[in-house]
Amino acid sequence: MTEENDLRSRLVIGQKRDGRREYDDNARDELIRLCLKRGVSIARTAMEHDINPNLLRTWVTQYRQREAAKELDVRVSEVSDEVTMDT
Score class of each variant (00 low, 15 high):
residue 55 L to K: 13
residue 38 R to Q: 11
residue 32 I to Y: 04
residue 15 Q to V: 14
residue 25 D to C: 04
residue 50 D to C: 06
residue 13 I to D: 00
residue 32 I to W: 03
residue 49 H to F: 12
residue 47 M to D: 07
residue 22 E to M: 13
residue 29 D to T: 04
residue 48 E to H: 14
residue 52 N to R: 13
residue 22 E to K: 13
residue 16 K to C: 14
residue 10 R to T: 03
residue 31 L to Y: 07
residue 14 G to Q: 05
residue 41 S to H: 07
residue 60 V to T: 13
residue 53 P to R: 01
residue 24 D to F: 05
residue 52 N to F: 06
residue 51 I to A: 00
residue 38 R to I: 12
residue 53 P to S: 01
residue 37 K to Q: 10
residue 46 A to Y: 06
residue 14 G to V: 09
residue 21 R to W: 09
residue 22 E to F: 08
residue 31 L to R: 05
residue 20 R to W: 08
residue 60 V to W: 03
residue 28 R to P: 12
residue 36 L to Q: 13
residue 31 L to G: 08
residue 55 L to M: 12
residue 29 D to E: 10
residue 39 G to V: 01
residue 21 R to I: 08
residue 54 N to E: 08
residue 46 A to I: 12
residue 50 D to K: 06
residue 32 I to K: 02
residue 23 Y to D: 01
residue 60 V to M: 00
residue 38 R to C: 03
residue 7 L to V: 03
residue 12 V to S: 00
residue 44 R to E: 12
residue 15 Q to H: 13
residue 57 R to Q: 12
residue 18 D to E: 02
residue 50 D to H: 12
residue 13 I to G: 00
residue 44 R to P: 11
residue 36 L to G: 05
residue 15 Q to E: 10
residue 55 L to A: 04
residue 12 V to L: 00
residue 56 L to W: 05
residue 48 E to A: 09
residue 13 I to E: 01
residue 9 S to V: 00
residue 22 E to V: 15
residue 55 L to P: 11
residue 24 D to M: 02
residue 60 V to A: 01
residue 18 D to N: 15
residue 19 G to F: 10
residue 36 L to V: 10
residue 32 I to M: 05
residue 17 R to E: 10
residue 49 H to S: 07
residue 42 I to A: 01
residue 30 E to W: 05
residue 29 D to P: 14
residue 7 L to D: 01
residue 19 G to P: 15
residue 44 R to D: 11
residue 29 D to H: 15
residue 49 H to P: 14
residue 17 R to Q: 10
residue 49 H to I: 02
residue 26 N to F: 15
residue 15 Q to D: 01
residue 53 P to M: 02
residue 63 Y to A: 05
residue 51 I to L: 14
residue 14 G to A: 02
residue 38 R to M: 06
residue 58 T to W: 01
residue 14 G to L: 06
residue 57 R to I: 05
residue 35 C to Q: 03
residue 34 L to A: 08
residue 27 A to E: 04
residue 26 N to S: 09
residue 34 L to N: 13
residue 59 W to T: 04
residue 17 R to A: 15
residue 40 V to R: 12
residue 24 D to C: 05
residue 37 K to D: 06
residue 13 I to P: 12
residue 53 P to Q: 01
residue 59 W to N: 00
residue 39 G to D: 05
residue 11 L to K: 08
residue 31 L to E: 02
residue 49 H to E: 03
residue 60 V to E: 00
residue 22 E to I: 15
residue 37 K to L: 07
residue 30 E to S: 13
residue 28 R to W: 06
residue 46 A to R: 06
residue 16 K to W: 11
residue 50 D to P: 11
residue 45 T to V: 09
residue 58 T to I: 02
residue 43 A to G: 04
residue 53 P to F: 01
residue 17 R to I: 00
residue 49 H to K: 11
residue 51 I to Q: 06
residue 19 G to I: 07
residue 36 L to P: 14
residue 20 R to I: 06
residue 45 T to C: 05
residue 36 L to W: 06
residue 48 E to F: 10
residue 23 Y to E: 01
residue 52 N to I: 09
residue 27 A to Y: 08
residue 25 D to T: 10
residue 20 R to P: 11
residue 36 L to F: 07
residue 31 L to T: 07
residue 43 A to N: 11
residue 44 R to H: 14
